[in-house]
Amino acid sequence: MLEIRDLHASVEGREILRGIDLSVRAGEVHAIMGPNGSGKSTLASVLAGNERFEVTRGEATFLGRNIFEMSIEERARAGLFLGFQYPVEIPGVTMANFMKFAVNEKRKYQGLDPLPAGDFLRMMRERAAIVELDQKMTSRAVNEGFSGGEKKKNEIFQMAMLEPLLALLDETDSGLDIDALRVVATGVTRLRTPQNATVVITHYQRLLDYIVPDYVHVLYNGRIIHTGDRSLALRLEEQGYDRLIAEQA
């Protein structure tokens, strides 16, 4: 589904990614961990198409297509979803209206007619329930005045609405209390199917108690220095990154 080869990317002339290789197949869950500044969020942003970053070398394909030849919205419509670390507020635009546009753009891409209003409302209700998001939130402006926890739930709610093939969740656990973390993580797990894949970027092992990864990658200094299974995350929690980094050096 996603193939990344020797990916280099920089921001304002500073190289952040220095040769990433990663394969994600349908049905898999990958966790990317690593210390601050290692390039985790950059990787997610580059894949989503954030124009702040410049890809300087390497390639990436999504569903067999060169991802860098696709616009941000094209990647999204094809099924790539980024759960933002810092969800953006859009004053005056209601969640319902925002989602109506997003869902129908995707349907158009798939050659489907826009969803009838009644079906759309039912879908919103069902999907909001997955993350225990108050139905009333959908009539409020996007993320405006939402608490930290609500913003993160709202990201997963959008993921539930858009049913992506590949979800990149950028520190979805940061700023969440234990209960919200459980709700968000359970929501992600419930959305898992054999057809889709999830890449979870996180600092903490805690999230991985709920979202059980098939692979754990450690990103350091713009490269994946180690890949293992779930036990790697537990080991990191115990020993920290330093030891692993020293071993690799």
Binding site: A48, G49, N50, E51, S71, I72, E73, A76, R77, F81, L82, F84, P87, V88, I90, F98, F101, A102, E105, K106, Y109, Q158, L162
Partner: peptide, 9 residues
Amino acid sequence: YYMRQRGID
């Protein structure tokens, strides 16, 4: 950017 990431042109 946020809206485009949700598929809106």
